[in-house]
C-alpha cells in the first residue's frame, strides 16, 4: 500500500442498489474514459448512506482516460441541489479504467475534507471492484471507508 493510504475501522458507508447501479452503468458506458459524478444521501455520525449518484460531465481537456475534472458551475449547482432537495452532499465518484480503485497522488492533492471519494475500477469496459476513500484530519493521507452492504445489493 502507498504511504498516503491507511486503513480505517470506524467509518462506514452504505450505498442503495439504485445509486450503486447508476455508478456502474455510468462507469462502464464511459469506458475507456474516466467518468465522474456527485454522491448524495444522509450523514449521521460515523455512517454515511448514499441514496443518489448523479453523473457529471468530465470536462478535463486532454486525455480523459487518465484524468477527470468537474466544471465549477456544475459543482455550484450540485451544492444548490443538495440544499434545495434536502440531501447531504456526501462526495464524488470517479472511475479508474484498467486500474485498481486506489486513489493516486493526483487524487490526494485536490481532495477535500469530509467528502467520500468513491473509485470504481473498470476493466476492459466491465465493472471490477469499488472502494471508497476519505482524507484524514491532517489532510495528507487517505483512509479507506468500509462499504458494508454491497453483498445484499448485488
Amino acid at each position: 500500500m502507498e504511504t498516503y493510504l491507511i486503513k480505517s475501522e470506524t467509518t462506514t458507508l452504505k450505498i442503495t442498489p439504485e445509486a450503486y447501479h447508476t455508478m456502474i452503468e455510468h462507469g462502464e458506458s464511459g469506458f475507456p474514459n474516466e467518468i465522474c459524478g456527485f454522491l448524495y444521501g444522509k450523514y449521521s455520525g460515523d455512517e454515511k448512506l448514499i441514496t443518489l449518484a448523479k453523473p457529471a460531465e468530465n470536462v478535463k481537456e486532454g486525455d480523459q482516460r487518465r484524468r477527470f475534472e468537474i466544471d465549477p458551475r456544475d459543482y455550484q449547482r450540485a451544492e444548490v441541489f443538495a440544499l434545495t432537495e434536502g440531501f447531504d452532499f456526501l462526495g464524488i465518484y470517479h472511475t479508474h479504467p484498467n486500474h485498481p480503485a486506489i486513489p493516486s497522488i493526483h487524487d490526494l492533492k485536490q481532495a477535500m475534507p469530509v467528502f467520500s471519494y468513491i473509485i470504481l475500477s473498470i476493466q476492459e469496459g466491465k465493472f471490477d471492484h469499488i472502494r471508497s476513500w476519505q482524507i484524514d484530519d491532517q489532510e495528507n493521507k487517505f483512509f479507506e471507508e468500509n462499504i458494508t452492504n454491497l453483498n445484499q445489493n448485488g
Binding site: 474516466e34 475534472e69 455550484q76 493526483h106 485536490q110 471519494y117
Partner: peptide, 11 residues
C-alpha cells in the same frame, strides 16, 4: 458569493 473547490483527479 460561492466558494467552489476544484474537483479533479485521476491516475
Amino acid at each position: 458569493i460561492s466558494i467552489i473547490p476544484a474537483i479533479a483527479g485521476g491516475m
